[in-house]
Nucleic acid binder design. Sequence first.
DNA 1: TAGATCATGTAAGCCGTTACATGATTAG
DNA 2: CTAATCATGTAACGGCTTACATGATCTA
Lengths: 179, 179
Amino acid sequence: MNTLSYGLLSLLTRNSRTGYELTQNIQPFWQAKHSQIYPLLAQLEQKGYVEFVHVPQSDKPDKKVYSLTDNGREALQQWIAQPTDEPVVRDELALKVFCIGLVNKEQALKVLHEREVYYQKKKEKFAQSFERIKQDSVKPLEELEIHDPLFGLYVLIQKATLKIDADLVWCEWMKTKLK
Amino acid sequence: MNTLSYGLLSLLTRNSRTGYELTQNIQPFWQAKHSQIYPLLAQLEQKGYVEFVHVPQSDKPDKKVYSLTDNGREALQQWIAQPTDEPVVRDELALKVFCIGLVNKEQALKVLHEREVYYQKKKEKFAQSFERIKQDSVKPLEELEIHDPLFGLYVLIQKATLKIDADLVWCEWMKTKLK
DNA sequence: TAGATCATGTAAGCCGTTACATGATTAG
DNA sequence: CTAATCATGTAACGGCTTACATGATCTA
């Protein structure tokens, strides 16, 4: 059981989902392609952590809708109690910035600007997710508590927003340095 | 040429370094083990981007001190001008938080506390790096400009500090949510 | 005397990306 | 008419981790 497998189980605590949906939904938390997810789902099914129903469709391809079993839920609870791996961050930009003195200010600003645009788009996406769960929630988000179904997603969006704001502050600060 | 290879060249713009030192020095920016680095250095040498001198030592094992060639410096400049890959972040904690409602508040706080301690230690390390380059620098750090040798490292420490502070703010906020 | 540090290297295996493969519907 | 979306799967390859291998000095 690798970390991604637990991630798939985590998503299934909220809803039943297809492999296709899981591939999309896990992206904000863990980058993975469908070619990695489908074999893992087959393994999880063999272990009895998930089960699926085959749903034939006429207009679109047939699909398998996966849901979490009781065994799967127990495995998740045990996983949460285990020590958590340290986060892994690999950012090509950091390596470029380290030796940014090799190029002139104009080129450096170009590199930075590309990343700033990326951060702004990401911020926009998080804002949209925030609006979406605001609509879905029965209570105001600030009142959500640990056992409310949207709690985890809500606090993760907060985390992501805080970090992206830090990134944008740094971008602004860098622009003053490169003028 | 993968990203890590360029990262090794980046470090060599500042100093000549051994494979052992490169392995340690690249950790804050790109996690990689020596078993990955040594073969890459051999490749970089074959491509003519780095060269090394064999330095025999009596008390410690002999070492190879690598330095950047003119070809290597040119390769770096071209790399900087290419579009930058998006950052990859894989954090097991995010997956756990998504389904944190499966456990009680006490257990959730334990998971969070473990991570908070990790963030605090990281913050301490960045503060030390900051002090070190403050000592090494001929000018006050705020006056460093793009072509100063410590500029890249200085702005990277600023970036890391801003992000870690965001992480710590989130941890504090989460504690209020779980009380 | 056990473990950390310095120092380099190879081998096996898992993790993740890219590419191959199929095929219907819908939007621009 | 082309591209995107839905939907699942396999194969090949490159990236990264763990383990194997060696060996001296220094610290607790």
